[in-house]
Structure formats: C-alpha cells, structure tokens
Amino acid sequence: MEEGKLIHLTLAGIKEAVSKYGTFPMIQPGGFVLEDATFEFNEPATEDEIRKLESHFNVSLPKDYKEFLALHNGLELLDGIEILSIEDVMKYNETEDLPEKCFLIGYHFDGRYVIDSNRYEKGDLDYLFYLDSIDHFDEAVDLKANFEIWFDRLLSSNGNKYWVLERDAKAYYKNIN
C-alpha cells in the first residue's frame, strides 16, 4: 500500500462505525464494550496552512501526516488523546525543547507525540516518538511507526499505549482484575 492511503482507510472505518452504531465500539479486556468513545474531527487544513507549517519548522512533512491534515486539521479522540491542529502545533512547540526538525503533534493523556522529520527526510518511515510529560527527547520511545501506522495501531488497541501492552499471559491476567 502506498504511504498516505492507510490514514484514509482508518478514518473512513471510524466514521462508518460511528454512523452505523452511534459510537466507535471499543472492546476492553474481558470483552466489555466501552460505550463512550468519542471523536471530534476538525475541518480540513488548506494547502496554504500545510505549507505554512512546513515553512515554520523548515521541514518536509511526512506524506501520511499531510494527508491527515488535509482531511482533518486536528482530532480529539477516545477522551484523552489529541492530534493538534496546525495552529496548535506551532503554538505549543514554542515551549518545547526538542531537537531541530522535531516537533510535537499531539498528546496522549500525560504524554506527547513527536515527529522527527530528520528521519523522514532521510527516507525512514519510522519517525514517530512518544515522550512522557517530563521526558527529554533522548528518553523518547521510538514507536517504530509513521503517523498512519501509529494511528491505526492506536485504534486497534482501543487507545491503549500498544507499545507497552503486557505480552506475558500471567501478567496479562493480573492486569485485567
């Protein structure tokens, strides 16, 4: 699949489920359905707004992230996760201490999502990082994903930090209780 196509499929899937069920059915451990999954989609960004963001950080934005912005200039989802609008990306990065060409694009409750466009510009599609609220970039978790794969995996894991999910069977049972 071509980079930038998965974000279209994932967003279409969300909208179809919400249209059909009135919500996005999220299955929690044990089979319980979380009924209050919410999605607040912003209006699309214009090409000028996207170019302004690239110019602001002197970067080439990843294709899949640009596709997302062209569909929705920001999104609040699952009651605690936010993908920032272009305006908020520029605003909130004023106080961030990140390496050159790295910038905050969203929040996950108490953590932050950061794009490392240095990687993307070198052809590496694994450019997305997660930082806890007080972490410096050198302590970031490499999500080994681009924007659209991260977003798809995040939804598949019901908004859980899939990169830290317990894989040991005994420990998993303990976490359900």
Rank of each mutant, 00 (worst) to 15 (best):
M1K: 06
M1F: 11
E2F: 05
I7M: 12
H8D: 06
T10G: 05
T10L: 07
A12Y: 14
G13M: 05
I14P: 10
K15F: 04
A17F: 00
S19L: 12
K20P: 06
K20Q: 15
G22F: 03
T23Y: 14
T23K: 15
T23C: 13
G30Q: 10
G30I: 11
G30K: 07
F32K: 15
A37E: 08
F41Y: 13
F41V: 06
P44H: 01
P44E: 00
A45Y: 04
A45Q: 09
E47D: 15
E47Y: 10
E47S: 13
E49F: 03
E49S: 14
K52A: 11
L53N: 11
S55A: 06
V59L: 03
S60D: 12
S60Y: 02
L61C: 12
L61G: 04
D64M: 05
Y65T: 09
E67M: 09
A70K: 12
H72V: 04
H72M: 05
N73W: 01
N73G: 06
E76L: 08
E76G: 04
L78E: 04
D79L: 08
I81R: 01
E82P: 00
L84Q: 05
E87H: 07
D88K: 12
D88M: 03
M90P: 08
K91T: 12
Y92E: 13
N93L: 01
E94Q: 14
E94I: 08
E96N: 04
P99G: 12
P99F: 02
P99M: 10
K101L: 06
C102R: 06
F103A: 02
F103P: 07
I105Q: 05
G106M: 02
Y107K: 06
H108R: 09
F109V: 07
D110F: 00
R112F: 10
R112P: 13
R112M: 14
V114D: 01
N118D: 10
R119M: 05
Y120L: 03
K122P: 03
G123K: 07
L125E: 11
L125A: 10
Y127H: 03
L128M: 08
F129G: 00
L131V: 08
S133D: 13
D135C: 10
D135I: 02
F137T: 03
F137N: 11
A140Q: 01
L143Y: 04
A145D: 14
A145F: 01
F147Y: 06
E148L: 11
L154M: 07
L154S: 03
L155S: 03
S156F: 04
S156R: 09
S157C: 05
S157Y: 11
N158Q: 08
G159S: 03
N160K: 09
N160I: 07
N160E: 14
K161E: 14
K161M: 06
W163T: 07
V164G: 04
R167V: 13
Y172C: 11
Y172F: 15
Y173R: 15
K174A: 15
N175W: 10
N177G: 14
